[in-house]
Design a protein around this nucleic acid. Structure first.
Length: 927
DNA sequence: CCGCTGCATGTATGG
DNA sequence: CATACATGCAGCGGT
């Protein structure tokens, strides 16, 4: 019998694992946790995947294809479905064979109950087949009377006979009629099964057969070591008698013993039994720092079922038990969370009008028939009572509800756009309460970031959960699915990483570009002009963009967390395509690597630095070394002479300080890039951020540029990673290395595409403008070069229009391509071109005249000069430079691939052709 | 001129 | 496509 140690440092009790019968399935999609029997501390949060680790290995076999897929990875949740208590079929088989669950009226399937619970339904056709869970098909068989409420209790299922089929019956007492309707409501909607505060569900025991007396079990000291906890909702709380509010609110939900299972509601918690303890994981949507269940922030569906169907999950209250208790204090009143809203700029503005979600207003506020509305009294957390005018505006045959006069209240709470106001009700008085959460301690990043619209950004989002506590439960999963489902990018790859034994559940997604680009991975919204961004604060709460440094830092931190995850070494993923989405399946868990810092010295040498887990000193490693989760300098096989803990290779304090400073500086610059993107192109004084101009670092000191940024790891086959350090390693035209082959392949594809397009436009183009097409043709040789072409054309276009210098280009004039200045394009040009020649171009300033000279050359001349003629004829893309010719530059600098990284993504944006055609249509004559 | 009020409109999003 | 909602803005009244 395995034992665990309670993670509560103050407790430390050994928690023996009960010898539960395996194959005791439970629903997925909840905030699972385990409680220490001794101190009651929640010490594990189990992912939804863990629930069907029925064999405790995490591996399940598809009953159709036999493929073994590991729970805890994407496969377990989205690619597997449980057809009955034991059978699992992968989605591919289910889809291809049309397998339908048999033997059950309502199949037990995983992976969706959570989404439904959190309102995060996704659009897969499979979803339609997925029930809320076997609960839907369950029967209440046993009741228990939990008449005492002294601390957490667990319900112990029959352990001696896993096949016992004891029938239970639940009796609802109080004002809830145990009618068929009520029961069916419960059965059809799990969220309502869980009674919450204010409820008084008194469940009487009616044991039969060989089932242990539940009452006895529950009245005795805790026996189980593992429970699943759900934050629950009230079940029509205000219809319950007030006198019972101090009693435990219990829902006993008993299933057949070969079915999910048992839970009971205690207070606002519901505890279910898990078959076995599993490794601790962070569960998305939960606060990883929450030491107890009461601190976990979980979205609660509305208390009234009819509202639930109307109210968007974004308004679901996410108040924690702790907060609820704080509000209710010692009073006997019950706090019913109603809804919450993230304040928009308008809400928090001086107008003093808080727009209420329509459904919420109509559900929880008094009905009003006149637009003038009525005054409502709302008490804030300090006990102060405010009177707001609750009214509506007619709007499109609908209503728009507002609370007027909220400014004093908002100000007293010191709220601003992005903060969250919560509305609760105190029962039985029915008094409305208003609380709040500051955005600063409630990093709210709504799930739009996870949608397929911005896959790049989505890919860079964390799936270590709980960091953003406003995320829907399990957002890592649901958001992932949403992204997959919404994405129109057929190349979207979901790179699922499984749990390593030492890590928590985490998802990692890369897009088709590898999503390594920090800047390139930003959604356009983050690169939007300031005005646009500020408007988006709280905009519909769906696309709340973090505009403050803190949140950006957090995002970067998330990224950094992801940097630590690597695919298992030497494991080749199998790629499957499901509904146009490519999945990389790994048959081994991911590796949680150790954090490291990448730097590049001015010599071009790249280094990786990390700390020894033994002596905690900084050590230098090869840049391409994949760090294991733990690493000690004794393992420094590259330089054994320096691998003792007192090795000379360690950093001196000053060096360390410098290194960390540079690392921080790099982070700051990443942030600065976000902030400065819109203005960069007309701010030649800040070229360093994108162009890597001199000044970034002392030539004699390490330069904190991640030319091979950390998220690219050995095994990454993207164009960035596979190319040698810039300026090094000339490739011969006949070279067949990865780099050259990739570039050749890309070039070939692009040329084919180009030719096809060209044939359509050739006549017009030849007639209209020869010299524009030339450079563009060339510049589109590589996708990332297209921006260069656009840049040039934009320059011309802009100059032709305004006659002003190109640096003065306004973002708004070409907002289809957020700011990059010309040297950025120059950098970009040499991104994927191969270092067959020395890189001639790295300019921080480009002469307009020289650019125009280049631009005005005939295509053939240009190709010839740039060596692309040979490329065209021989497809030797590895030779020659795609960069602007030397004449176009004034200085040289070092290549900076981290810009290239981002540009690789951007280069795939459509539009450059549009720009050209637009130019043509307008008949603009460049100069 | 300023601020308030009510409505209109644009945009995001869900169905 | 319908709807919700964030916010712009015209019009009005008060100062």
């Amino acid at each position: 019998m395995a034992s665990k140690i309670c993670m509560n440092a103050l407790c430390g009790a050994v928690v023996p694992s009960a010898d539960f019968k395996q194959g005791w399935p439970l629903r997925s999609g909840a905030a699972f946790s385990s409680l220490c029997n001794t101190c009651g501390t929640l010490y594990e949060q189990l992912s939804f995947c863990d629930v069907f680790h029925s064999d405790d290995t995490g591996w399940r076999e598809c009953i159709s294809c036999g493929k073994r897929l590991h729970c805890g990875c994407i496969a377990s949740s989205s690619l597997l479905e449980i057809l009955d208590s034991s059978g699992v079929i992968c989605i591919r088989c289910a889809k291809s064979s049309g397998v339908q669950p048999t033997g059950a009226e309502s199949p037990t399937r995983f992976g969706t109950s959570l989404e439904k619970y959190a309102g995060e339904t996704h659009s897969s056709s499979l979803d339609n087949q997925i029930s809320v869970g076997s609960i839907h098909n369950s029967k209440f068989k046993q009741c228990a009377n939990f008449s005492n409420n002294n601390g957490p209790k667990q319900f112990l299922p029959p352990q001696n006979d896993s096949t016992a089929r004891s029938w239970y019956q639940m009796k609802l007492e109080g004002s809830i009629p145990p009618s068929a309707d009520a029961r069916n409501t419960c059965l059809s909607n799990y969220s309502q099964l869980t009674a919450g505060s204010g409820s008084s569900l008194d469940i009487k025991t009616k044991a039969d057969k060989n089932t242990p007396d539940v009452k006895d079990v529950c009245g005795s000291p805790v026996h189980t070591n593992l429970t699943i906890s759900l934050v629950a909702q009230s079940l029509i709380p205000h219809s319950l008698p007030n006198a019972t509010h101090s009693l435990p609110n219990v829902v006993c939900e008993m299933m057949e013993s070969d079915r999910p299972v048992s839970s009971y509601q205690h207070g606002s918690r519901s505890h279910c039994l898990l078959p076995k303890a599993s490794k601790p994981v962070l569960t998305a949507g939960l606060d990883p720092n929450a030491s107890t269940m009461s601190q976990m922030r979980v979205a609660r569906p509305p208390v009234e079922g009819r509202i639930k169907s109307q109210l968007l999950p974004r308004y679901w209250p996410r108040i924690t038990e702790q907060e609820l208790q704080q509000i209710s204090g010692d009073s006997n009143s019950t706090i019913v969370p109603l809804f919450e809203k993230i304040l928009s700029a308008s809400d928090a503005g001086r107008i003093g009008r808080l727009v209420l979600p329509k459904a919420c207003a109509e559900a929880y506020f008094p009905p009003i028939s006149q637009p003038e509305g009525i005054p409502v009294r709302i008490q804030d957390v300090k006990g102060k009572e405010w009177v707001f005018q609750f009214r509506f505006w007619p709007n499109n045959n609908s209503r728009m509800y507002v609370l007027e006069g909220v400014t004093p209240c908002i100000q007293s709470m010191q709220l601003q756009a992005g903060d969250t106001v919560t509305f609760s009700r105190m029962d039985p008085e029915g008094k409305l309460l208003m609380g709040f959460r500051k955005a600063s301690n409630n990093i709210v990043m709504q799930d739009s970031h996870f949608t397929g619209k911005h896959n790049e950004f989505f890919a860079s989002e964390p799936f270590l959960s709980g960091v953003a506590d406003n995320l829907p439960i399990m957002n890592g999963y649901s958001g992932l699915l949403q992204s997959m489902n919404r994405s129109t990018d057929p190349h979207t790859k979901v790179f699922s990483k499984q749990l390593s034994s030492s890590s928590g559940d985490a998802w990692h997604v890369t897009d088709k570009h590898g999503s390594q680009g920090i800047i390139g991975s930003l959604p356009p919204t983050l690169l939007a002009p300031e005005r646009k961004r500020s408007r988006n604060i709280g905009s519909k709460s769906k696309r709340l963009l973090i505009d403050n440094q803190e949140a950006l830092e957090l995002k970067l931190t998330w990224e950094e967390v992801q940097e630590m995850l690597h695919p298992p070494a030497s494991i080749q993923p199998t790629t499957v395509t499901i509904e146009d989405h490519e999945f990389e399946e790994y048959e081994a868990p991911p590796v949680l690597g150790k954090r490291s810092i990448f730097i590049a010295r001015s010599s071009g040498e790249q280094e990786q630095w990390t700390t020894c887990d033994c002596c905690f000193k900084w050590r230098r490693l090869p840049s391409d070394f994949l760090l294991p989760p733990t690493w000690r300098c004794q393992e420094n096989v590259w330089d054994r002479s320096r691998c003792s803990c007192s090795a000379p290779d360690e950093l001196s304090p000053s060096e360390l300080e410098q290194l960390l400073k540079m690392n921080n500086d790099f982070k700051r610059r990443r942030i600065a890039v976000f902030n400065q993107m819109p203005t960069l192109e007309h701010d030649s004084s800040t070229p360093g951020i994108l162009s890597g101009s001199p000044g970034q670092g002392d030539v004699s000191s390490p330069v904190a540029t991640t030319t091979r940024h950390p998220r690219h790891r050995p095994g990454c086959s993207c164009i960035v990673c596979i190319q040698p350090p810039s300026g090094k390693g000339k490739h011969k035209p006949t070279c067949t290395c990865n780099v050259c082959m990739t570039v050749k392949r890309r070039f070939k594809t692009l040329m084919l595409r180009k030719k096809k397009r060209q044939s359509d436009l050739e006549a017009e183009i030849a007639q209209r403008n020869q010299f524009i097409w030339g450079p563009k043709e060339e510049l589109e040789v590589e996708s990332s070069s297209r921006q260069g072409g656009r840049s040039l054309i934009n320059l011309l276009d802009d100059k032709s229009r305004s006659g002003s210098k190109p640096q003065a280009m306004d973002m708004d004039q070409r907002n289809d391509q957020p700011g990059k200045d010309i040297d950025t394009y120059a950098d970009e040009l040499d991104l994927n071109c191969q270092p067959g020649e020395d890189f001639p171009v790295k300019s921080t300033r480009v002469s307009m005249v020289s650019l125009l000279q280049v631009a005005s050359r005939p295509l053939e001349t240009y190709l010839k000069q740039t060596g692309l003629t040979s490329l065209l004829s021989e497809h030797q893309t590895s030779s020659g430079s795609h960069a602007l010719p030397q004449a176009a530059t004034e200085s040289e600098g070092q290549p900076h691939q981290n810009q290239s990284i981002m540009l690789e993504d951007q280069g795939k944006e459509p539009g450059s052709d549009d720009k050209v055609s637009e130019l043509f249509q307008n008949g603009t004559e460049p100069l």
